[in-house]
Amino acid sequence: MHTHTSPAAATAATPTGNMVELFGATRTYGTGAARIHALRDVAIGFPAGTWTAVMGPSGSGKSTLLHCAAGLDRVTSGQVILAGEDITRAPEVTLTRLRRGTVGFVFQNFNLVASLTAEQNVALPLKLARRRPSRKDVRAALAQVGLEDRLRHRPREMSGGQQQRVAIARAMAARPAVLFADEPTGALDSGSARTVLGLMRDMVESSGQCVVMVTHDPVVAAAADAVVFLRDGRIVDRLVRPSAPQVADRLARLEG
């Protein structure tokens, strides 16, 4: 089992214990009549060692929240703190450094480099960060997601579930303090989805990593520690350790 605790996870949280914090975060797109408020004055913290699911109807701003929190997009006003650093106006160099060590990403469409093998894909972020990944570590990460026999396969030779497990192994190998996941099970069958959720739970429990996940599936959201609900760019509700029917019920009322 993976027992190493990322030093970032242990030290970089804010005094409140949050790995990621947003204060008065507002994000607008376009100008004039075409102006869209994707986020309106959102304040939220994501503590270390927890897994939070972000839910809401289409267009509620959940992906924008994830992008802004991860430093992939910038808030129009407000403040974003990631692993103890203010990234609201941070230059590209800072964001690149954070992407190398502090944050990891898992997305619906896997986002593997097509020309690289599973092994090479897992080692890629470490190489980009100029850390020399040992073959043993890379293999261990792939073994953890149950893909020790797929080391030399390229993405197109693997199923969707296998590709997503490679993506998770890639995120795990860099031991990020925060893992951002956008519909990580969206393209998977239910069996593969269960495996992936189990792996994410492991990261939270054993390494104390913080997971922020966007999903529209109540069953997937129920695997998280807490669920926050967005509508029209605002946080409108929050559930702690809910069951899938509770989440579904709340979501149905939001959309109704």
Partner: peptide, 15 residues
């Protein structure tokens, strides 16, 4: 998309 992915995985502009 592939180049953007490299950026997301921590690739810098010079890289």
């Amino acid at each position: 998309r592939e180049l953007a992915l490299l950026r997301m995985l921590g690739g810098s502009r010079p890289q």
